[in-house]
Design a binder for these strands. Structure first.
Lengths: 218, 218, 218, 218
DNA sequence: GATGAATGAGATTTCATTCAT
DNA sequence: AATGAATGAAATCTCATTCAT
């Protein structure tokens, strides 16, 4: 009996850190790192000022834990997808990048990308972590796919690094934009710049067209 | 001859604003907007706390002046170049974007781009300013060129917005990267990601290839 | 019994605002509004710099709270007294004004009057607040009483505004004097000008005599 | 010849202090002591920042010089008037006090009264000076007149000090009001409280009526 | 005598962090 | 484990005053 109620408390205790990290994600993404007050995080997590300090040494540690919690996990699924795919890789790239958009880019987690950029020089350790955990695996995967495409004759033979940049840049820019200018500039050049899936898809197709080997017969 | 030498202070007065802006650029880019103290700027410019306020109303105005000084003014030259250009616009895009890289992207001024992204939600006013002064004119120009290319048959007829994004994204990403991860992550996927002119040029060519109308005879 | 003693901090929390207001009253009255530093108030209240901000948004709000605490609240009692009173109003005026002297004029709270005058042009917002909270209600009440007196034939029929000024001026001057010249000028014309209740009472009787209708039969 | 131009410069040089004091009067009265910046005074006097320091040690000294310059002179005329007057003194009081209103109360110099009150505790020396130079002579004169009135039977026999207060208070309050609340509170109790000559005159008549001996036959 | 660029002490306010309860 | 009152360092901006010219 004591066991039961203890476990209920225990569950609560275990849940606290996630609750705090969830709250922190929302706020950091919305307001940026320094503009987010510890007390805001606490309140959003339904606890009081002092409580976050029971679980995290300080604000910076919350930031780091948050990235670990929200990003590191999501990547394996993508790598698997890539390995299972057969057939033309142009299609695979399209699928993977739009899937990343759907599952990350269009969600609050995209804010972490902008956050990592914004705070890279302030928290080098965090940037390194993000680079290792997110950027490197992504890039590896894209480069691997590109190589497959060039080897098979589907793509022209081009420098890998710049090709992967051309492919990823629209996605990265879309995520970054969504959590910076899009928040405060309603429209630019007369039209809204809220990136849509369709918009992104068009940009990707354009780049893929540039990659395509014109003499390749499917 | 005595005429020639203005008062020592007079000379200083003329030089001060630039000195302060130079100091501010370095610090802002290195540490971010809020993390840079006015006193740091002053000290870096070789004056005391109060002096920057003789020339700029406040910190935000320093940022704005920096943007005007380093970016807005340069943009005009680009617009002129565009208007004078005749012949195929693919080449024009290549020239313009690499020129932008040479004159901005590869200089400390590129940090302003990252800065604007990083601080957009903290200082909406700054983001709006940057959007009006830099993003809008750039985008207008690129879109105008794209339309010229599509009208002349040089480019395929594609959605303008996503095409300009695909074109600009590698440049923006390069500038952003240079002032965030590049500062703290030596290399990713085993090779250095310090963007080079060649690298960027390749990525642009790839996108331009995707834009090209295969049936177009020059 | 354990129930009785709230936490030490809880007790403090309840007491703090008054402690801060008391400290502020003394300092404001003594040194003026701008010359009083928030840190001085804090120190005088036995806390540190940041603590007053837990209870009051800023310095102006401290002033306002002081006015509410010492003046606004007291005024209600006066208005009630006025409404309950029957019979000749000359006597009522005498009672009310001397009561105001006893409860405000002869206490440190009188300093608020001088303060409001002194800082009116520097802090218009404060002046407006004081006007709304103190001057208007006072004046309304006095004017109402004067009208009652004129209607009943007890007083001569005279312009209300100048009559109320003549009545209130000695009281206002006494309060102002006490917190300005009296602090630094021991005596004027050879006698002390520390206003006394008797002195004020004489001045009021003189004005009341001027108001009196000589043909009125009580 | 050198003489001539020297004297022209000389004249300018002699005029500077007054110009500065005039400027200071306007600004101090309008904005208060601390809110008036030295640079404002300089600019209003048509010189630059450093110049006032050539003539006055600091801001406080300007304040003191200003009072000396603007008030000390005006008082003799009033004393003479009093000594020449014969006949009922009620009329004399009315004349003198309204004359004071016309020549001081309704002019910017009235602001000095409010200023002296506001800054009395900050600048005790100034307050003492004002008391000696202005308040004492005024009070002496009024008390002397009251005594004449009581001796002749024109006035009731009452305490001198409180009688003179009742007489002066409306005038003092009017001057103080004009340079404090009147500047920022448009109207109180629904009507404008910009004191007028007529208004003041009514208040004085009321007090004089209270002083009058009912059995006195003119 | 006059200028005005520069100084630097100082004031308000914020907020990450602590720690008694 | 949780609270929340209190701390106090730190940052922006102002302005009286100085002093080289």
């Amino acid at each position: 009996m004591a066991q039961v109620s203890a476990s209920r408390w225990q569950r609560k205790k275990d849940a606290r850190p996630s609750e705090i990290l969830d709250a922190a994600l929302t706020l950091f993404v919305e307001k940026g790192f320094s503009a987010t007050k510890m007390e805001d995080i606490a309140r959003a997590a339904g606890v009081t000022k002092g409580t976050p300090y029971l679980y995290f040494q300080n604000k910076e540690e919350i930031f780091k834990a948050m990235v670990r919690h929200h990003l590191s996990s999501r990547l394996n699924a993508f790598v698997e997808l890539e390995q299972q795919h057969t057939g033309p890789v142009g299609e695979l790239l399209q699928i993977l990048l739009l899937k990343w958009w759907d599952e990350v880019g269009a969600t609050p987690a995209a804010g972490l990308c902008k956050l990592a950029i914004a705070e890279a020089t302030n928290f080098p350790e965090l940037a390194r972590f993000y680079s290792t955990e997110v950027i490197s695996p992504c890039l590896s995967m894209i480069e691997h796919i590109l190589r497959r495409g060039m080897d098979s004759g589907e793509f022209r033979v081009l420098p890998i690094a710049s090709s992967s940049d051309a492919l990823l840049a629209p996605l990265v820019m879309a995520m970054t934009w969504a959590h910076s200018f899009a928040k405060v500039v309603p429209d630019v050049c007369g039209y809204s710049h809220q990136y849509s899936r369709a918009h992104l898809s068009e940009a990707l197709q354009l780049v893929l067209q540039g990659l395509k080997n014109p003499t390749y017969e499917n």
